[in-house]
Simulated scan of single mutants.
Amino acid sequence: MLEARSLTKRYDGQPALQDLSLDLRDNEYLTLLGPSGSGKSTLLRLIAGFDVADRGELLLDGQSLNGVPPHERGIGFVSQGFALFPHMTVFDNVAFGLRYSQRDPVKNEADVRRRVVEMLDLVGLADLGDRMTGQISGGQKQRVALARTLVVNPRVCLLDEPLGALDANLRQRMTVELRRIRKLLGISFMHVTGNELEALSMGDRVVVLDQGRALQVDEPDRVYNRPNSAAVARFLNRYNIFEGKLTDGGGFAFPGGELPLPDSVPTNRDAASYCIRYDRIQVRGMQGAKNGATDAPVPEGSAAASLAQLPARYITSEYSGSAIIYFFRLADEKVVEVEYHLSHRKPDAFTEGDLYTLAWPREEALVYA
């Protein structure tokens, strides 16, 4: 439906987007994930028509958007700051685009009221139409901004970090609400975020951006379980990443030790990144450990051959509600994180400063050139 072809945009000579191509499908929720400065908001501004690309083309339903002004594109935009009119009621904010559109404004006030009331009901604000925007909460303002955008029936809705200003509980509720609203209306959403959990939980597909390029465009489970590069794994904030090189003996050497490689990794590469997800690591006891180890040391033999193992000293833990993150320090001072989900069993107790073995199936590791 919406296609970006080789988009390039520079500001003061610095590239914001570099030859970027991607598509937004009909009736799809597409999330864009990346760090600050990766080009996410620039892409939205080009699609909306607020900025003009230096090179490349945008097409909507096969028709070029190059040179088409923003108000004629049929594309809605919800900014991070909501940009509501403080001197207007909630109702009048939502009605603004219907009444004052430069293309086909709605002159019949009964039609305006009907459409605004329907939209306020859809976003859960049916009883707040007469309130001023200064009298409602941040989450309600977010819904007003969304309703104002959707009431004019855009073909595409662009959301620039729409949940960034909300508290954690409200952000979680709005995650569900946005997907529900999109599904009911059948409008394609493109949602920019710097939060990896938000991107994975909301998107039908996820685009990982960095330095103006799309590193991976895939379904959330593929991005999470099989990131196609160490850079993507780093943005997910769920992987321990070791930098080193492949050895002649078929291992991976880094300053903290040497690890066995998965069978699928070619051995004819030099520099490499070795990644293992936090929740794939088990903590095992070692000789001399005082207490807290739930598993015995792994013996030599076939079981050990299938595992990657590293000695590490326990530092501390961090409780996050549904999980605990344990922190361990390797011989080279690198800190390794181990995620333990509390639904599994009673959490382990480790002794600060004691030595343990971090172990995981070697086939669970991802190794990149």
Rank of each mutant, 00 (worst) to 15 (best):
E72C: 10
D54T: 01
R55Y: 08
V208Y: 03
R345T: 12
T42A: 01
Y11V: 12
L307I: 04
K346L: 13
L197F: 10
N268K: 06
L120S: 02
P15C: 10
E363L: 03
D160V: 10
V298E: 01
R205A: 04
A349S: 15
L158S: 03
G186C: 03
F91L: 06
N268W: 02
N169C: 04
P15V: 13
S264C: 11
S273F: 13
A126N: 03
L98V: 04
D295L: 15
E364P: 01
G67W: 09
E198I: 11
S21M: 07
R45G: 04
L59G: 07
S322L: 14
R5Y: 07
A323N: 15
R114P: 01
L98T: 09
G250S: 09
G257C: 00
D121R: 15
Q282S: 14
G62Q: 09
V217K: 04
P220V: 02
T247W: 02
S343F: 13
A83H: 10
A48P: 04
D248C: 07
R222F: 08
G301M: 02
G353S: 00
D295V: 03
R179W: 05
T149I: 04
N66A: 14
L24G: 06
Q309T: 10
E352R: 10
Q102M: 10
G292K: 06
G194R: 05
V117E: 15
E339M: 12
R173C: 06
V223D: 06
T267K: 12
V68C: 02
S188Q: 01
